[in-house]
C-alpha cells in the first residue's frame, strides 16, 4: 500500500490518499493523472495495465489500485 501511495503522491501530491475512496468520482484524479499513474505503476511493479483495466472502480482508492496491481502481478 505504501508504494502505491508513493506513486499517487508523485502523480498528484497533497491529497489524503490513505482515506480517499472517490478519487475518480470526486475529480481528484483526472484522465491526465490516470495516464501518468498507469505509466508509473507499470514501471514500478513491472506490470502491464491495459485499456480494459481503465474502469473507474480500479482507481477510486489506493486499495483498489493495489488490488489491480496484485491481480496483474499474479497473471
Amino acid at each position: 500500500m505504501k508504494e502505491v501511495i508513493e506513486v499517487l503522491n508523485e502523480v498528484k501530491p497533497g491529497e489524503d490518499y490513505e482515506n480517499a475512496t472517490n478519487l475518480i468520482t470526486d475529480g481528484i484524479l483526472t484522465s491526465f493523472d490516470i495516464v501518468t499513474l498507469v505509466s508509473l505503476l507499470n514501471m514500478k511493479f513491472n506490470i502491464n495495465i491495459s485499456v480494459m483495466d481503465l474502469v473507474p472502480e480500479n482507481f477510486e482508492s489506493a486499495s483498489a489500485i493495489l488490488e489491480l496491481v496484485n491481480k496483474l502481478k499474479e497473471n
Partner: peptide, 22 residues
C-alpha cells in the same frame, strides 16, 4: 477519452516514449 485518449496513451509507442523521457 475512452476510445482515443486512453488507447493511444497506453500504446506501446507512447509508453516507450515516456520511459525514455523519464
Amino acid at each position: 477519452k475512452d476510445y482515443i485518449f486512453f488507447p493511444v496513451s497506453l500504446s506501446k509507442i507512447n509508453m516507450k516514449l515516456n520511459l525514455k523521457v523519464r
